Amino acid sequence: MIAISEAEFSRVKDLATTSLLRYLRGRGWSPSRNYGRGQLWELPVTGDSGEPYEVLVPLDRTPRDYADRVADLVETLSVVEARSPADVLREMSLPSADWQFLRLTPPGPAGTVPLTEVVPALAGLKDLMTSAAAAEASPEPQPVQPAQKPQLVKDHVATVRLDQTRVGSYVVAVHTPLPELPSQGYLFDDDTRSEPFARRVSRRLYAALVCAREAAETSLRDDAVADFAPYVPGGLSANLCEALVRIGGDEGPGFSLDFTWSSDLPMERPTERIRLARPQLTALDAGAKDLRARLGNRDMTLRGSVVRLHRELPHGPGAVTVAGSFEDRDRGRLRRVRMTLDQHEYSKAAEAHRRGDEVLVQGDLTVLGSAPRLENVRSFVVRRVSE
């Protein structure tokens, strides 16, 4: 057993009993017997019919030997988990959080990964968190998410923390802190359980990964690109598929994702490991392209200026050309986009052309080539130069 250092011992006395219990619950321990100011907790031995692991947890911080009892607990856990006491103590000190573990399996020595693989994997992991948060923040999940994300999504992704790597090939650990919860760990509103946004995002991410795996397996089974659209309500999107492909790299063998949920907000049922091998990632890449081709051009927002007007009669609908760029794609590439507007909107376009005002047009992009068009125009907004 590795003894706890003096520097670490000076920190254990500051650990609250709630932190000790949260850590144990989150790793599968459960209470078995009470001993006055202490409680015995057990952990079943996986794949073994022998006696479970046991630890004695101090429940009262007032005795002088509280720090000694916590130090004993930390040292025992470090043996059970094959980790250093410092790592165990550090995680005990963290606030309540949901964890995800990305397990990469690159060739080479265990515990290492080529730099050229881990950098895009981390970028893909950020995109994965962003797509899950965007799906949860949207009134209705979208097959292709807009490039501009709400501030709520940006704020959430900023809270996600990258932790130390774990033993087992190359495991990237990330966690999302949860806000402080009532002592019972639940919130009720009109008899309906509510959860903080951070937990809802983690749930959405897990559901989307299950959908992605099922959609990919359907494609492989049918030997054709499956229709991914039915999985969109679960959180699947072209963005999420592209993030998964990016994590896997160009020729990587695949990866897996595990979820550990904060014991302060227990899940109704356990969640399984999500594995995605190279064939599944190839199928997800094709599915993402299909989603973008079929559904990615809806509700596009064009920002620009009116450069051409034409109609056959003095009144009624007319053809308008706007020179501008789409906010959600092509990195601001300038295009001339044609559209047909009704009499009211055409009059607004004519006035914007006369004054040189900027316009914002929302509709469905039907042709993305030399002659792009916006159909089903739902919004035509004029922004005066003086605004």
Rank of each mutant, 00 (worst) to 15 (best):
F101P: 00
R329T: 07
G332N: 08
H315S: 15
R294M: 05
A86S: 12
A86Q: 04
L181I: 10
E8Y: 00
D98F: 05
A215S: 14
A212E: 08
T112G: 04
R69I: 03
V225I: 15
S263G: 12
V320F: 07
A349M: 05
E81V: 00
G254T: 08
A135P: 05
S10T: 13
V144G: 02
E345F: 11
Q343N: 15
E75I: 00
V201K: 02
P233S: 07
L21P: 00
V320Q: 05
R61T: 12
Q39S: 14
F9H: 10
P372T: 08
R331Y: 11
E81P: 00
R333C: 03
L20E: 00
S169Y: 05
M300S: 10
R25G: 00
N34Y: 08
P143C: 09
R33C: 06
R373V: 09
G124K: 04
V382E: 11
G363P: 06
A229T: 14
L281A: 09
V119M: 11
F101Q: 05
K289F: 10
D68Y: 06
Q142T: 12
R269H: 11
N376V: 02
S10R: 15
R273Y: 04
R303Q: 14
L257H: 03
A67P: 02
L94N: 02
V320M: 07
D14Q: 12
G28M: 01
R292A: 11
A319T: 12
A238T: 03
A226I: 05
L313P: 03
T62S: 14
L21V: 15
A215H: 05
F259K: 07
G369F: 06
M129Q: 09
P31R: 09
E217P: 02
F259S: 12
R27N: 02
A371Y: 14
E81S: 04
R269T: 13
T105L: 13
P85I: 00
R338Y: 11
P253V: 13
D250W: 09
L374F: 08
D222R: 14
A110Y: 11
A212D: 04
E195G: 01
A212H: 10
G124S: 07
L128P: 01
R329K: 09
P253E: 13
R294A: 13
L309H: 11
P177A: 05
A173L: 06
V12A: 00
P95W: 08
P58K: 04
S325W: 14
L94I: 03
H344P: 01
A132K: 01
K154A: 13
V113S: 03
R11G: 00
L77V: 00
L125T: 06
G316C: 13
R384E: 15
E180W: 03
P106F: 03
L257F: 09
A132Q: 07
S256Y: 05
P106Y: 02
A319N: 14
P233Q: 08
I247C: 12
N239L: 04
D60V: 15
Y66E: 03
M1S: 14
P143G: 07
R311S: 01
E81W: 06
R336V: 02
K126M: 09
A67G: 12
S370I: 10
L56G: 02
V201W: 04
L89H: 01
L281I: 12
P253T: 10
A243H: 07
N34C: 06
Y186H: 08
P196M: 08
G47Y: 08
R292E: 15
A134H: 10
W261S: 10
T62A: 12
L115C: 06
E75V: 01
A349R: 02
R308Y: 12
T218H: 11
